[in-house]
Design a protein around this nucleic acid. Sequence first.
DNA 1: TTCATTTCTTGTCCTAGTTCAATGCATGCG
DNA 2: CGCATGCATTGAACTAGGACAAGAAATGAA
Lengths: 193, 193
Amino acid sequence: MYTQINKNISRYVTFEPKELEIFNSLLEYKTVPKKTILLHEGEMCNFEAFVIKGCVRKYYIDANGFEVILQFAIENAWVSDISFSIYEEKPSRVYIETLEDCEFFMFSPDTKEELFVRAPKFERAFRILMQRSLAVTQDRLFNTISKTATEKYLEFLDHYPTLSQRVAQHYIASYLGISAEFLSKIRTKIAKH
Amino acid sequence: MYTQINKNISRYVTFEPKELEIFNSLLEYKTVPKKTILLHEGEMCNFEAFVIKGCVRKYYIDANGFEVILQFAIENAWVSDISFSIYEEKPSRVYIETLEDCEFFMFSPDTKEELFVRAPKFERAFRILMQRSLAVTQDRLFNTISKTATEKYLEFLDHYPTLSQRVAQHYIASYLGISAEFLSKIRTKIAKH
DNA sequence: TTCATTTCTTGTCCTAGTTCAATGCATGCG
DNA sequence: CGCATGCATTGAACTAGGACAAGAAATGAA
């Protein structure tokens, strides 16, 4: 049960079995049905979730009521609005919603602190995870600014080959920052290459 | 001399004087003239720099040869391509260039490791700094996708009031993801409100 | 001071992507 | 099973912003 998450957290830092035991003992296993909103705008985000199974989206709602998807998280990904809310005590501006029935391992900020006290090496592992998220987000920003819609879509397919089967098209459009109609037109154009 | 950086690093974590001493003893002070490229695409980024004075930009060059500015760093900001290169051992895809004569405190990856060994609490401080960068980048991504060019520019002025005096307009355009000409048109429209 | 280089502005034309329908297609649910 | 709601597709009209070009203004080096 813990193999997946232990492999994930050990990717850049090597842990002793004892440390992983502490880690695992602090995780809370949770199943959540699809279309459940785990975090609403204005709430404090009091969890960090590791996706064991399923798919979630994290999104903003803009001034005109349009959703902008920041992240899809599938198996072996982490999702949270850690960036703002946990350390700043500011309410979140994002929503986090399950798109499929999900299984998670969850952390509260307090148990995370406990983990860092009892096994300080995890501080390092989470710092590196954070760096990787930053790298991914920077790359996405670059793509969003510098590529055409078609290029962005092709790159998306390349980067997340399974996701296009799993989530509705208009979610992908929202992730790419284009309208659902235009994505549909791109797809028909690609299809008749 | 160390007041600025010590204040910055102590923002979310409280340090003992002794810890700050270790920190300061590991920093390398450097002055760099304007228009110096600190990091070229394809190089390994072997530094993290804290800006004491001056202004730098960090940018990609896209497939058509256009520059896309990811970050301006001014006084009290950190700049590096830490996200990819240091832990992944991958060459960088970005350039980092001074726009003004600059003073920095610099770290190499090795001295950073030494710092973490000698004063592990810094691991935490850098994790939180990383989280904040991620938050800023996510916000920027959201703005880039969901706002008009005029909104983005006004928000930029609001967010970085001094920067528009300090850097060339076409750099701001590149940061906002719009053409320099269009930014100029936006400015004249705003001027005659 | 002068010349050169870079930066900013303005105008015209153009295109990638949007908006707003309308229609057909899935699907989930009672 | 039938119905309703959401989803994808397509088309037509529109627009935000880009590309190009040419001139004006600012900066800087000698």
